[in-house]
Amino acid sequence: MRDFTQELLELIRLTSTDLPNQVEERLKTALASEELGSAAHAALETILKNVTMTRKNSTPICQDTGTPIFFVSAPTSIDKDELTVQIRGAIELATQKSYLRPNAVHSITGKNSGNNLGDAYFPTIHFQPSANDELSVDLILKGGGCENVGAQYSLPNDELKAGRDLEGVRRAALDAVYRAQGEGCAPGFLGIAIGGDRGTGYAASKEVLMRDPDDHNRDAELDQLENRITTEANELGIGPMGFGGKATVLGTKIISSYRLPASFFVTISYMCWAFRHHKMIVKGEAIDYE
């Protein structure tokens, strides 16, 4: 099998240092919505300056380069074990080149592995079969600040008067945004999974963030709910960094999965404004990044 280590290194460099244009555009729109001279306006200005700077200098947008989360869609010709070795090798190289901070800490001893490699879960690599001959590798870098404010609700929830329906989902989502305040580095993005179990719920809430920020949910009802949650979350007035302001959430994506009769989980992954996501596509000999 072909060695993709250098190409994967480029994917990591790109993801850590180059904020996707669509995210940057949303930040610019957010800036325009905030009052001139407010702390919210100043925060967004600083954020946008930083985005330009890191793209130019090829340095990390945020020092917390997070958990590298890979979603690989691979044709049968790809040896998963070998690709895993290449991904891990690229992670180690990217750490040496300061595109990534050494982030893998042993939970019992507290020792940092120094090279960003932990056990089978660090980095996180999800494989799925490819529908065609293309190999595609999505990478999301998700920092600890926003990961810590993620939340899972088991419905019904009496406190929120949230039942097992889309109204209950809406209530849980707004409550999660309220609880996060500025701690997840607002303005952020919400990935919401309805259903699943506790494990698959969190995985799906991250996977749904890979959707194009500008797309629409294929389910009209969920599409409407995505927009409503974004609009209402912004009414909360939490604002950039929690300084108060209009821009709290820049986008919401929802996915629903099957659940057990006894369970109804609503799982919310909060992605900070530094929504670092890029994709590498291998089609024959050609390799593209988007």
């Binding site: 925060a43 600083t46 954020i47 990390p60 947008i61 945020c62 500025g182 580095c185 530094a274």
Partner: peptide
């Protein structure tokens, strides 16, 4: 003092 979260390169400067 609140610094801007994620403004990592700017602060590093």
């Amino acid at each position: 003092f609140h610094a801007i979260g994620g403004a990592a390169a700017l602060i590093a400067e």
